[in-house]
Amino acid sequence: MIDIHPFIIFLAAIFTSNILLSNFLGMCSFLSISKEVEASLGLGMAVVFVTVLTAAVNYVVYYQILVPFEIVYLQYIIFIIVIAATVQLTEIFIERFSPALYYSLGIFLPLITVNCAIFGVALFMIIRKYTFMQTIGFAAGSGIGWLLAIMALAGIRQRIKEKMVPAGLQGAGITLIITGIMALAFVGFSGSVIIQ
């Protein structure tokens, strides 16, 4: 068990070890959704919400069910089921209580089940042996870090939409270069806080 304040982990997860720019998680939806700012904001918010919720549920399930019954090797299946179930429940819940929010977030929720950032947070929390509060801080930071990265990329992509790009680089190529430059900027934060 490492002794770091959850808030430090929260900050570190946003900046020094951004889940997307230094751990490369959640790239698929990152590359495909980041064409528009509004859609990116919607997906990013949904990711923050679901990451925190599923990390909390997964933490409890792992330490209260899997460890006592010695079925830790089933963790992948259990985590996936928990994530899928939580996303489904969230969808029903939001649809029932806030239709407005449902229309802005709703279409992104099914996409999130297969977002590796969410699953990655669950795996990192086990590997790094976080406590419950640290897990919450890490999950919130990771979600917000992801939101920050996708918003920044969407903003840049909208600016360069009309610009000339070499034919072979169009689409994924130029997006990866932009992401690389962003990652380079985030490398500047590294070393200031160490969380693993």
Binding site: P166, G168, L176, A183
Partner: peptide, 17 residues
């Protein structure tokens, strides 16, 4: 991390071109 993005995009560029 950043070089991974750059190397992959260079590979994309070469193959697509």
């Amino acid at each position: 991390a950043p070089s991974a993005f750059f190397m992959l995009s260079i590979l994309f560029w070469y193959i697509h071109q």
